[in-house]
């Protein structure tokens, strides 16, 4: 029964998967470049400008450098797990993109192609599940390094991610009460017709934003790799491309969480103050992708701006913020949202 697979559909999805994965890798690659340029601008420097015009080939040069570095494997507890760590970090970073709606349908020679790999009805929970698995890459790598500092970094990462996941989940519950659906596509369609969710859930968005900084291990939450306390944190023992994988997965995570925030709170591929349905479907879809990418770039810039502005938290401040400020705020937000919905439904 299931063997009768629609091969055209299979091919379509396969192409979409390849395009999405390579696009997110490419974007992450140039995010590393953008980070150095933004840092340079914020610190009144020029930034990388030697490789290629405007230094545009810099990411390639960085990648080459990592590939040619000597690979040092320490006297470890497990070689398999030592390799598993960065691989898992990369895998979980790439997996999230499966449920994101990148745009509306495209008319491809008479065939309507959905610009989303899988429109599952538990979309947002899938994202949450993959995010919660992301910590394994760091923890396994840290433990397999057989190094105190790595282990401390890994444990910090794990406790940080678990703590902030709670507030993130509760802020999402308030959002889900408003939208009444778990499908990301459905949420975008709702926002196209009504208001963006950030208008309805400003506090929820703020909590979600702070938590996604923490989940991506970005400054001010980059305690797992705090170099003045832990040398290099969980990737102290890593060199060559394995280190590259860890660093790179952070940039992919940053890109993906920007996409998620744009989709959940800022209308996804919706063009503000404009009715897309008057355009031809293909043009509308392409403009939608452009709109989504503009929002994503704005978020990525915010990530960098914060990184080069705010210093790192102390560990007790991190835990205090997570457990005593964000979680009560998220709980209050959830109760208030529920109360308002109940009041207006009467």
């Amino acid at each position: 029964m299931l063997l009768a697979i629609d091969f055209a559909l299979l091919l379509e999805k396969l192409i979409l998967v390849v395009v999405v994965v390579f696009a997110s890798l490419g974007i992450a690659m140039y995010t590393t470049f953008a980070e150095r340029k933004v840092a340079a601008i914020l610190q009144d420097r020029r930034g990388p400008n030697r490789a290629g015009p405007f230094g545009l080939l810099q990411p390639l040069a960085d990648g080459m450098k990592l590939f040619f570095k000597e690979e040092i494997i320490p006297d470890f507890s497990s070689k398999f797990l030592f390799v598993m760590g960065p691989a898992l970090a990369m895998l979980t970073a790439c997996m999230t993109s499966a449920v994101i709606p990148w745009g509306d349908k495209i008319d491809f020679f008479g065939r309507m192609v959905d610009l989303q790999i899988a429109d599952v009805n538990i979309g947002i929970l899938y994202v949450f599940g993959v995010v919660s698995l992301g910590v394994y890459g760091i923890m396994i790598g840290a433990w397999a390094s057989n190094n105190k500092f790595s282990l401390m970094g890994g444990l910090r990462a794990a406790s940080q991610i678990i703590s902030y996941e709670l507030a993130m989940g509760i802020s999402l519950i308030a959002l889900l009460m408003i939208t009444g659906t778990l499908s990301l596509k459905e949420m975008v369609v709702q926002q196209q017709q009504g208001y963006w969710n950030v208008v309805l859930q400003p506090l929820g968005f703020l909590i979600f934003l702070i938590c996604s900084f923490a989940e991506c291990n970005r400054t001010p939450f980059d305690l797992p790799e705090a170099e003045n306390e832990l040398i290099g944190g969980y990737h102290t023992e890593y060199s060559s491309m394995k280190l590259g994988f860890y660093l790179f997965s952070e940039y992919i995570n940053m890109f993906i969480s920007s996409v998620i925030m744009a989709t959940l709170f800022f209308g996804g591929y919706d063009i503000p103050f404009f009715d897309e349905s008057v355009l031809a479907p293909n043009l509308a879809a392409i403009l939608g992708i452009v709109a989504l990418m503009t929002k994503v770039i704005a978020f990525i810039f915010l990530f960098m701006w914060v990184r080069w502005t705010i210093p790192r938290f102390r560990y007790d401040q991190l835990m205090h913020l997570g457990w005593r400020i964000l979680i009560p705020m998220a709980l209050f937000n959830m109760l208030a949202t529920g109360g308002v919905i109940l009041y207006f439904n009467k």
């Binding site: 919660s132 910590v135 394994y136 923890m139 433990w143 282990l151 406790s159 678990i162 996941e165």
Partner: peptide
């Protein structure tokens, strides 16, 4: 897999 096993791993490590 995402929460309880992380705590297990935490304790064991």
């Amino acid at each position: 897999a995402g929460a309880i096993m992380v705590l297990f791993l935490f304790v064991v490590m």
